[in-house]
Simulated assay, not measured.
Amino acid sequence: MNDVLLEVKDLKKHFPIHAGLLRRTVGHVKAVDGVSLSINRGETFAVVGESGCGKSTTGRTILRLEEPTDGEVIFHDKSLGAVNIEKADAKQLKKIRPQMQIIFQDPFSSLDSRMTVGRIIAEPMVINRTHEGRALKDRIAELLTVVGMRPEHASRYPHAFSGGQRQRIGIARALALNPELIICDEPVSALDVSVQAQVLNLLEDLQNKFDLTYMFISHDLSVVEHIADRVAVMYVGKVVEVASTEQLFYNPKMPYTEALLSALPKPDPRNRTRPTALTGDVPSPANPPSGCYFHPRCPYAQDICAVEAPPLRDTGDGHFAACHFSDTLTLKGATKLQDVPVATAEEAAADVIDAHASTSDSGSGTATEAR
Rank of each mutant, 00 (worst) to 15 (best):
M149S: 10
P124F: 09
R24F: 04
I96S: 06
I127V: 14
A88K: 11
A154W: 09
I121W: 13
L21W: 08
G20Y: 08
L37T: 11
F104Q: 00
V35E: 06
G59C: 05
I62C: 10
L6T: 01
Q92Y: 06
E142Q: 14
H153V: 03
K95A: 13
D10Q: 14
V83Q: 12
H28K: 06
T61P: 03
R139M: 05
P107F: 12
I102H: 03
I103V: 14
S36I: 00
F45P: 07
E142S: 15
D112S: 01
G118W: 04
R60Y: 09
L136F: 07
E66H: 13
I85C: 09
H76P: 11
R64L: 05
I39R: 06
K87G: 06
E132S: 11
V73Y: 03
F15W: 12
L80F: 11
H131S: 01
L93A: 07
G20E: 03
T25W: 03
H14W: 15
G20N: 12
A90K: 15
L80V: 12
F104T: 00
P98L: 10
R150H: 15
N84I: 04
M125N: 01
T116L: 01
I120R: 02
D112H: 04
G81M: 02
R23A: 13
G27Q: 07
T58A: 07
R64S: 02
C53V: 02
R41Y: 11
V48S: 00
E50V: 09
A135F: 01
P151M: 09
Q101F: 07
L63I: 09
M149A: 04
A46R: 05
N84K: 15
H131V: 00
V146F: 03
Q99A: 15
L111M: 12
K12E: 14
P107T: 04
R64A: 04
L111K: 07
I120L: 14
I74S: 06
P107G: 09
V48R: 04
E132W: 11
K9S: 13
L144Q: 01
A19S: 15
V73F: 00
L11R: 04
K137W: 01
Q101M: 05
E152K: 13
G71L: 07
L22Q: 14
S79T: 12
I96T: 14
A19G: 02
H28W: 12
V35T: 07
L136D: 01
P98Q: 13
M115R: 13
H153T: 00
R114E: 15
V83W: 00
M149D: 02
A46Y: 11
L65T: 09
T61M: 05
V47E: 13
P107C: 10
E142R: 13
A135I: 00
V83K: 01
L6F: 10
P124L: 04
A88M: 05
S56K: 13
T61Y: 00
V147S: 10
R119P: 02
G71Y: 08
P16H: 05
R114W: 10
G118R: 07
E67G: 04
E43Q: 07
I62P: 02
A141F: 08
K87C: 11
G118P: 04
E50L: 10
E72C: 11
K30Y: 15
P98M: 14
V35Y: 02
M125L: 10
V26M: 08
K9H: 09
T116Y: 06
Q99V: 08
R114F: 14
M100Y: 07
H18I: 11
K94G: 08
V117D: 00
A141N: 05
